[in-house]
Amino acid sequence: MDIPYTTKDRPDTGLYNGKVGIWLFLASEVMLFGALFSAYVLLRVGSEPGTWSLGLMNKWVGAFNTLVLIASSVTIVLAWVSLKLKDFAKYRYWQWVTIVFALMFLGVKWSYEWPAKLTHYDITFVSNEAAARVFTDAAKMTGETSYTNRLHTAWGNRYDPNKQDYAKVELKDKPLDGHIVGYIDEAGHEHHIGAAFDIPFWSHAFAWRTTTLAKKKVKSLIFAPAHDSWPAKHGAAAGAVRVAEAKPGAHATGHAAHSITVPRADIQRLSSFEPKHSTFFATYYTLTGLHALHVLGGIIVMLYHLLPCNHRLWLRDPDRFANRIEITGLFWHFVDLVWIFLFPILYLL
């Protein structure tokens, strides 16, 4: 038994079956991401001032990934064109290039973007007085006596680029963000985060929550405020803190120059930039995570098309094999297109 029009176009529709199938599948994908985009709009429009982050993403890394995906969309077309020109070796070359781009995209996400967020914490405070105390300490690191200007800029860049909401949000609800360096327990002993887990980079990703403070009997937290807004006055390199966190022993350089001590009694909420942090990060991880799964799916399909059994299919029925690559390409363009929408709404707007 043969299914008609698996390879050749049906005369009245001008399409082969697979092409109809993939367009229908993409229509359902549009609805899937459409629903998530709608959720994004509804949650963002309904968010309280100062809860929707507007400047925490690294837009240059995002832009780099956008270029990588666009390039991969071009190379997969080249792979398909090579097949149409009956050049299987060229196809294999461009298919591999596409896969490398796709892996590069995921690599940036997995090794830099997500970990950088998941190890980045922020603190809100029990009272305005407590917040003022901590912010003053942070300002001292920069050599200033008042935190007001610096907080206005730092918080504004993160949550309020149009400078409309500063007065609407209480001081205690304006978070101080940065990295946990260590803590002092109730007996007065000092602990360093890297030593607690001994896994670089992921070492304390979303491991700490407000409840952790009680569990670990923390008296006060040793916290390094984010360097782009609260630079240390001795000019400690921006990377020094992260190294100190990640590697036990490396910490001995002395944290006093680039960290402050935050008493547990002052902390209302401690959270890393994990999905639970806020609806912004919930949306960010869900959207980019689902998109990353699509990228992964694309990589698996592209690798499958490089298997020897598919070379045999190429030799037996070249048109059919070229069609498969065309369909993969259509899916891949869609994955690319989703990212082209994701990049502005999560990184730029």
Partner: peptide, 17 residues
């Protein structure tokens, strides 16, 4: 399906969709 994924995030990852 999207809503299901979001509710799953609410259940498992503690988000507040």
């Amino acid at each position: 399906e999207a809503a299901g994924v979001m509710q799953l995030m609410d259940k498992l990852a503690g988000t507040s969709f």
